[in-house]
Amino acid sequence: MTMLGTVLTFTFVNNVVLGQLLGVCPFLGLPRGPRPAVRVSLGAAAAMPAAAVLSWALRRLVLVPLGLESLELVALGLVLALLLLVPARGRAGLLLPQAVVNCAVLGVALLSAGSGIARSLAIGAAAGAGYLLAAVVFAGLRERLDREWAPRAMRGLPLSLLTAGLMSLAFLAFDRALLSALGG
């Protein structure tokens, strides 16, 4: 697959949240309105390319030379645990654990396993961009839905889930056929 194809695949076709269902927990907890949502999700989105490159380096420099590929998850867990110990103050102190213990971030690290450095970086960046895109649209939709009437049992989380489900349905329109038509 070409680089453009990789980027389009991981941003639209296999969107982290809406296509692969990764990182749904923090996604549902996003604040209302596009601007605060972007501020909160920037950490996770930036962590995705970093995690992809990190997992490539870990695999290339440590796991493969030592023949320990089967312990990839433990090695990643060790790195994440060490990252959690990094002292951070202020906003970084709040955002760091969120970005570290995030299933979308670890998912990107695992998904990019086995690719070269350039492709890993492209996958991570595309996945991060896809996450931000989904977060902006979702937060905007939720802000509008808050003003509408809904049955009591549907308010809050159930309505968020249905909104995300319908967005995911819309993202099904981006498929491989569309990509190949675009020349990917």
Partner: peptide, 8 residues
């Protein structure tokens, strides 16, 4: 059975 179904 596809991804949207899980959320819905």
């Amino acid at each position: 059975a596809a991804a949207p179904g899980a959320l819905l």
